[in-house]
Nucleic acid binder design. Structure first.
Length: 324
DNA sequence: AAGCGGGACAACCGCATTTGA
DNA sequence: TTCAAATGCGGTTGTCCCGCT
């Protein structure tokens, strides 16, 4: 076995072993999360620098919510921020403490697939037949996934001008119209409620819709049960300002990882978070690393804010033309 | 019990951007 | 100023697990 083991000078790929993680963690403890390439050049690991960085960022960083499903609140935030920023996963992830861009990306991808599948079921004329309501798999045989009108996120190549969604404004109808046409939903039989972007369905909604599409729930009844989020009307956002300051303190806490490790759902589910009327979430920096790193990069308050997206404060004004 | 499909997740790849010599 | 290396990011693919038929 050990098909992945390679000789020196070769590059190892595939799943990481615990030993490798340990080496990587030690490196970060010593030098901070940088100089990834030196890990290989020093012969510590036969991994590329990119691979090392990715492993650290996505799995080993101390404040990650590994294994925790996205909460309803996180889901809502992702939906809203995706509508606002497009597929800027890294940016979106900064608003979700403990989540990585990969997490957000995977979450969104899964969600889109699921949504597409649901819509396919609800939109295909045969879907209301008894045969199709029996199983989703039946349809899969007749329509490959790629034939599905995938619920594309609005293409926001460089800007979101069409969204024109900012503080004090309601969601522009152009966005809704746009998404409506882009997705070309065939929903003659189970039309989705008008003027609701399917991208904005929450997980719970989709579950309900899935039932609808399967025909196991009478449409009218199900529709009455589906909650359509008020998105993205300006609304109270979870604000993490206080938490951000806590984070700052925790960065200097050698037990930071323990402090954060069990970080779980309840914190985000409303109880402890201050809900303040603010138009936008504040991103959270997640640069938890060793003491050496701190020594090299003392985290001053200014430095802390330097880590926020430069345009973060621009959003306090009507968005000009958020060109990233 | 076996096969299949979907969901979740980890990791790779290619390109873009930043950094530093 | 230029260029190579390092880093960051988004898209994509592969794998594993679980539930359903």
């Amino acid at each position: 076995m050990e098909g992945n083991r390679v000789e020196t000078s070769q590059i190892r790929k595939g799943p990481w072993k615990a030993e490798e993680d340990e080496v990587l963690i030690n490196h970060v403890k010593k030098y901070g999360p940088r100089d990834w390439s030196s890990i290989r050049s020093k012969g510590l690991l036969q991994r590329t620098g990119k691979s090392c960085r990715l492993r650290w960022v996505n799995k080993l960083r101390p404040n990650l919510k590994n294994g925790c499903k996205f909460t309803a609140e996180e889901e809502r935030v992702v939906i809203e921020l995706q509508a606002q920023f497009g597929n800027k996963w890294a940016k979106i992830a900064t608003y979700l403490p403990g989540r990585t861009d990969n997490d957000v990306k995977n979450f969104w991808s899964s969600r889109q697939k699921r949504l597409a599948r649901i819509l396919q079921n609800s939109g295909t004329p045969s879907s209301s037949s008894s045969s199709s309501s029996r199983s989703l798999k039946v349809k899969k045989q007749t329509h490959g996934f790629h034939d599905v009108p995938v619920m594309e996120a609005p293409k926001l190549s460089s800007s979101m001008e069409e969204l024109s969604y900012s503080k004090g404004q309601s969601f522009s109808s152009s966005y809704l119209d746009n998404s409506h046409s882009q997705t070309t939903i065939k929903a003659e039989e189970f039309p989705l409620p008008e003027l609701v972007n399917p991208n904005l369905y929450t997980d719970a909604n989709m579950a309900q819709l899935e039932l609808m599409s399967r025909g196991t729930t009478p449409y009218a009844e199900a529709q009455s049960q589906v909650f359509f989020p008020e998105i993205p009307q300006p609304q109270p956002y979870l604000t993490l300002s206080l938490e951000s300051q806590d984070l700052l303190a925790k960065f200097e806490d050698p037990c930071f990882s323990q402090v954060f490790a069990p970080m779980d759902v309840p914190e985000l589910e409303g109880g402890n978070l201050n809900v303040v009327e603010q138009p936008f979430l504040e991103p959270v920096t997640c640069s938890a690393f060793g003491a050496k790193e701190e020594a090299d990069n003392p985290m001053t308050p200014d430095a802390f804010f330097d880590d926020f997206p430069a345009d973060m404060f621009d959003q306090m004004e009507p968005l000009p033309s958020p060109s990233e």
